[in-house]
Design a protein around this nucleic acid. Structure first.
Length: 494
RNA sequence: GACGCGUUGGUCUAGUUGGCAAGGACGUCUGAUUCUCAAUCAGAAGGUCACGGGUUCGAUCCCCGUACGCGUCACCA
């Protein structure tokens, strides 16, 4: 039996009002790893930035994680979802763990690894300005309190707590994705552990929580590599073994810049993809594959991802977000759904267009097959289904102009007649009867089919002619053909 | 400026003890099919593996340098 400690990974978002798609990828890799190893996946809310951390902002994170199906074994609890959250390392909100940070800070002070710094913000600010005027960036505040005797200060006066950083040596680690990284200690400064208001700064809160929660691997974006050496220094000062670290490269927008809300061309908030009609599994698949690979495989189910994920094949360079490929992955996943699921899931999207359709509606069931071949998202699927459930067709302007014109009205009327008198209302019969008309007349199909398509659907693109007729039903087909014929007669001749 | 990270066709990438005509996918284009679109099938174009030096019989893979890109330098996270 192995004594390898149980894998415990955490995702620690700060609630900013939306869950960034890049954050989802970080969460996903952690989650996959935990699932694969039978470990724990912990969700911790880093809400020490109190202006931004509202209840709603937290809720958005929880909703997004739930929608994506990234279930956490420990973390905030959710009403109605008894399997989510809980755990005996709580609370899972940083603001509720203040006593812990104070405790750890006191210990460090007692051990001579940290000290109280009474320098005022003003004092520091001035020192910085003086430095930057001469040397530019790179200011490191040298607190006079580092070497003073503690008795010179008054602990009841406002003060921060600073780490007594070593000035020599090198701190390094083997990063799960980037490999060996070493940074000389003389680049460190006596960074602040606790602010004067009693809240921990990121590096400290993070270490205290990760340590107290028994995290074995810390995974985060690579904008955090700079924080890792200081954190390792802290683990050492606490006499604790530090966890492993893995830093994921950034996700970039098309312009090569960090993907952000400013990059309006793509949605960056995870929940936007729900509203856009994407499947959680597709989002996960695309994100997993963005920066990770498994040979030539592109499409993965959720279970395959869990089984095949590995850190060795996580790339160490930033990648650009490509919506086209994402859409392709999405369409592949859409096709993998069985009819029941598809029907159930498209219903809300139909409703959003004002169409109340039951999931077991026969027309819906029948139309799903042909329509889903032409759709990638649920929005597109609902759009392709739309005209089957409306009383009247709305013609696209261009379609109307091109096909509903006087010289084609006759074809529509003739077609209506054929449909009306067909001996049976099925695709074979309809096709036979229509060809019996067009072939002797040497009438090209496109002069019949295209106007008819516009008549029945309002558009120039749809499933096949006879297929659409059958889905629509005989009465509606005839009515729409005749209505369109009238419209065509009124139109200006070309 | 300092420190760190990165660099394979437009994009995501495969390439692991250096010996391939550098593979796949998205996208693009062509053809087949059809009443349209999509799907499908068959093809095509697109790479001096950032650049320059080494090491080697031989480098996308090893070493050094250069360029470019990105990230971070807070009592934010």
């Amino acid at each position: 039996m192995s004594d390898a400690p149980k894998v415990r990974v955490r995702f620690a978002p700060s609630p900013t009002g939306y869950l960034h798609i890049g954050g989802v990828r970080t969460a996903l890799y952690c989650w996959l790893y935990a699932k694969q190893k039978g470990g724990d996946f912990i969700l911790r809310i880093e809400d020490t930035d109190q202006e931004r951390s509202t209840d709603e902002a937290v809720q958005v994170v929880l909703d997004a994680m739930q929608w994506l199906g990234l279930d956490w074994s420990e973390g905030p609890t959710v009403d109605g979802a008894p399997t989510l959250g809980g755990g005996d390392h709580g609370p899972y909100f940083q603001t509720q763990r203040k006593h812990l940070y104070a405790e750890y800070a006191d210990k460090l002070i007692a051990d001579g690894k940290a000290y109280r710094c009474y320098a005022s913000k003003k004092e520091i600010h001035e020192a910085r300005q003086a430095f930057e005027k001469e040397h530019g960036k790179g200011f490191k505040f040298q607190s006079p309190w580092r070497d003073r005797d503690a008795s010179e200060g008054d602990p009841s006066a406002p003060h921060s707590i600073r780490f007594k950083a070593p000035k020599t040596g090198v701190t390094g680690w083997v990063d799960k994705v980037k490999g060996r990284i070493d940074v000389p200690n003389d680049t460190q400064q006596d960074f602040i552990l606790m602010r004067s208001d009693g809240l921990p700064l990121y590096n400290f809160g993070c270490v205290v929580d990760d340590h107290a929660m028994g995290i074995t691997l810390v995974v985060r974006g690579d904008d955090h590599v700079i924080n890792t050496a200081p954190q390792i220094l802290l683990y050492e000062a606490l006499g604790a073994t530090s966890p492993e670290f893995g830093h994921l490269p950034m996700v970039l927008g098309k312009n090569g810049k960090k993907l952000s809300k400013r990059n309006t061309e793509v949605a960056v908030a995870a929940l936007d993809y729900r509203d856009l009609g994407y499947l959680p599994d597709a989002v996960l698949n695309y994100l997993a594959r963005l920066g990770w690979s498994h040979g030539d495989q592109e499409i993965f189910t959720r279970d395959e991802l869990i089984a095949k994920f590995d850190w060795e094949h996580v790339g160490s360079n930033a990648s650009k977000y490509d919506l086209k490929k994402f859409l392709h992955v999405q369409s592949q996943h859409l096709r993998m759904l069985d009819e029941d699921t598809l029907a159930t899931m498209v219903v809300p999207f139909l409703k959003a267009r004002g169409l109340e359709v039951a999931a077991d509606n026969a027309t819906l069931r029948a139309a799903l097959g042909p329509v889903k071949l032409r759709a990638a998202t649920f929005i597109e699927l609902a759009d392709g289904l739309d005209y089957f459930f409306r009383d009247d067709v709305t013609y696209e302007e261009k379609a109307k102009k091109k096909f509903l014109k006087p010289e084609l009205a006759g074809n529509l009327e003739k077609l209506a007649e054929i449909v009306e008198s067909a001996s049976a209302f099925d695709e074979e019969t309809l096709e036979r009867d229509v060809l019996a008309w067009t072939e002797p007349a040497e009438l090209k199909m496109k002069f019949v089919a295209q106007p008819a398509r516009v008549a029945m659907t309002g558009r120039t693109r749809s499933p096949g002619l006879y297929e659409t007729m059958v889905l629509l039903g005989r009465d509606k087909t005839i009515a729409r053909l005749r209505a369109a014929a009238e419209v065509a007669k009124q139109a200006e001749p070309a």
